[in-house]
Amino acid sequence: MEWTAPRVLLAVDLVILTLRDARLHVLLVERGVEPHLGASALPGGFLRDEHEDITSAARRELAEEAGLSDVPHLEALGVYGEPGRDPRGRVVSVAHLAVAPRLPEPVAGTDAAGARWVPVERALTAELAFDHRRILADGVERARAKLEHSALATAFCDETFTISELQQVYEAVWGIRLDPRNFYRKVQNARGFIVADGPMRRTDTGRPARLFRAGPVRVLNPPMSRP
C-alpha cells in the first residue's frame, strides 16, 4: 500500500511573562474567531506558509495579535502535538517563552478581540483555550527555574537596587515568601551575581540599605535554589 503523508498543521504559541505591580503577569488574548470564540488564550497562530521560519512566525504573531514587537528574546519552550488538542485537525505547536521587564500594554489585532496582562496565579486557574493552561504552567516553571540558575532577576531591578528589592523579584516570580536572612546569605554566596555600588539608600523604615548592581556572571554558582 502506498504511504500517504498525514496532514499536519504547524503553529506557534507564546508564553510572555513580565512583572507588573510586583506580581508576575502573562500576556493573554481574547480569541475573536472559532474555535473557542471569546475564550482567553495565549497569543499564537499558524505559520504563514512552508517558507516561514518558526521563530519569525512567533514574532509575527506576537506583533499581530498583541502589538508587541520589541520583546528582546524568545526561547523555545516545548512542542505540543497530542491528537485532539485542536478541533481543526492535527495541529503541532512550537511554544516559545519570553521573560522580560517593563513590557508595554498590548494592543489587540488580527484575530484577537482583546489583549491584556493577567496575573499568573489567576491565569493558571482560568479556563484557557486548547491546551494553553498546560503550556502556561510549563512556561512559568521554566521561568522560575531560570531565576534559580541565571542572573535574570537583576534585569527586573533598576540599575542600582537593594537586596530587598531583588528579593521582591524572586518572591513575585516564585510565588512564595522568602526569609530575608536566608535570601541575603544565598545572594552573597552566588559569586559575581551582584556587586556593591554607590552610597547607602534610606528605606521606608528609615534604615539605610546598601545599594548593588548586576555583577559580571550570567550563570549562578551555586544556584539560588527555591525553598
Rank of each mutant, 00 (worst) to 15 (best):
T154F: 08
S150W: 15
A63S: 15
D204T: 11
F193K: 03
R207E: 09
L220I: 08
A11T: 06
R142D: 06
P104I: 04
A214F: 09
E34P: 04
L28P: 02
G215A: 00
A209V: 13
I176M: 07
G109I: 02
D70F: 07
L62G: 12
R202H: 13
D21R: 07
D70C: 08
D70N: 13
V8N: 06
R134D: 13
S164E: 15
Y80A: 08
P199N: 08
F161T: 02
V29R: 04
L74H: 05
P227K: 10
D138W: 04
P104F: 09
G192I: 04
A41W: 00
A57V: 08
V187Y: 06
L211Y: 06
S69T: 14
V94R: 11
V169A: 05
F156I: 01
V91A: 00
A153P: 06
D70M: 09
M224N: 12
P222M: 14
E75D: 09
D21W: 07
I135E: 11
L28S: 01
L14V: 10
D158E: 10
L17R: 05
R116T: 08
L24T: 06
E159G: 10
G89W: 05
G44Q: 03
A115R: 01
V92T: 05
A143Q: 04
V107E: 15
T205M: 14
H96A: 09
G44M: 01
